[in-house]
Design a protein around this nucleic acid. Structure first.
Lengths: 203, 203
DNA sequence: TTGACCAGACCGACCGGTCTGCCTACTTTC
DNA sequence: GAAAGTAGGCAGACCGGTCGGTCTGGTCAA
């Protein structure tokens, strides 16, 4: 695997260049619409090199989704470390998604898109998606301060639906799609306390 | 176009057999995963016949989505004709989606899936999707009894997000995904009045 | 005779994936 | 310190298969 650790000066390894190019292309055009030829072209890498690091395109796709899931997780953990808790952390998760939707070449949530492109899941792609989903659901659950676990679980699922729904709407409306659901977040997540988390304004 | 109208006895025209087979296959496996060869095979039709009716696969896809949108529209209109209004009609729309998610070979909402598969929209596919979306949004709006148009629009978008979110969740959880959002519908759509619309229980 | 349909060969393009061959840079050994 | 070996990456030819799409030729009913 050569889990090479680079300093900032070093050029990124071939594996990372491949994953970077694949991530950019997959996110913008979809997984099925991008062939390995285009990935190696934009990564500046030989075909054999790609297949040395990823046994098949499906492995590359899985690695792409896993990295994306890890990044999201780390972003949220960073916010938590910054002191955000409960309702404010939940709001921040929505704000992160809204920020992503505001990007120039935004083409929808990579997890929802990948799920739609892998209805027949021959590889382990949908497992990665299920894991990411469960992880976020649990985080919502932990952020809620309702006593009844059943009620907490239901509220977490409502928040998840709201997030996914806003992401779907953002395909056509961009980040503005998150405005409509905004008031509902407070309602579900608990006392709104002080207003904005500031995260959304960061970009 | 030969907009032939058959009685019940007549065998369906070639065009309809094509559209039926394509709809079944596209809905179950996704648009890109199904080739024209498979469509004509399951439709029992010659390749030339398909291309006589649909100039390209993209036209076939558009026809498939348009027909699906029309069917949804007609289902809702039938419920309206049956006397459902306001909040109860909104609930019925959710129940229709939940029923679809309960089907055996359900593989997600065809509109969301098609949107995810056509991030780069070369054909007019995304136009069909946008139309369907706008149409449903307007119907929600008409069903709400809030006075302020702005507030009504926002509530309609919240309902839409809830519906899309439940559809996304139903990819993994099936029709059960709609249970969680259920109480929120009443909250948004207005006075719950008498409980179930009965639609959901129909199947 | 005409027109709608059938079966299936055929086309060029592209797909994921393999393989050969060359080059470079580091490491081992004398 | 030079020679030899080795590992990783490069370019691109090549493979079988599938894609969307076209074309030929034949069947059948109106």
């Amino acid at each position: 695997m050569t889990a090479h650790v680079h300093t900032a000066q070093e050029a990124p390894s071939a594996r990372e260049r491949i994953l970077d190019a694949a991530s950019r292309l997959f996110a913008e055009h979809g997984v099925r619409a991008v062939g390995v030829a285009r990935v190696i072209s934009e990564a500046g890498v030989a075909k054999a090199t790609l297949y040395a690091h990823f046994p098949s395109k499906d492995d590359l796709v899985r690695a792409y989704l896993e990295r994306q899931a890890e990044r999201s997780e780390r972003e949220i953990e960073a916010l938590e470390r910054a002191g955000l808790r409960g309702a404010r952390l939940i709001r921040a998760v929505f704000d992160l998604a809204a920020n992503a939707a505001a990007q120039d070449r935004y083409a929808g949530c990579c997890f929802i898109a990948a799920a739609a492109e892998h209805l027949d899941d021959s590889g382990g792609v949908s497992q990665v998606l299920a894991d990411q989903r469960r992880s976020l659901l649990q985080r919502f659950d932990r952020c809620l301060d309702e006593d009844d676990p059943r009620s907490r679980d239901r509220t977490a699922r409502q928040l998840m639906a709201l997030l996914d729904g806003a992401k779907v709407a953002s395909l056509e409306e961009g980040a503005a799609a998150f405005d409509a659901v905004d008031p509902l977040i407070d309602l579900l997540a608990g006392p709104s306390e002080t207003g904005s988390t500031g995260v959304r304004a960061q970009l």
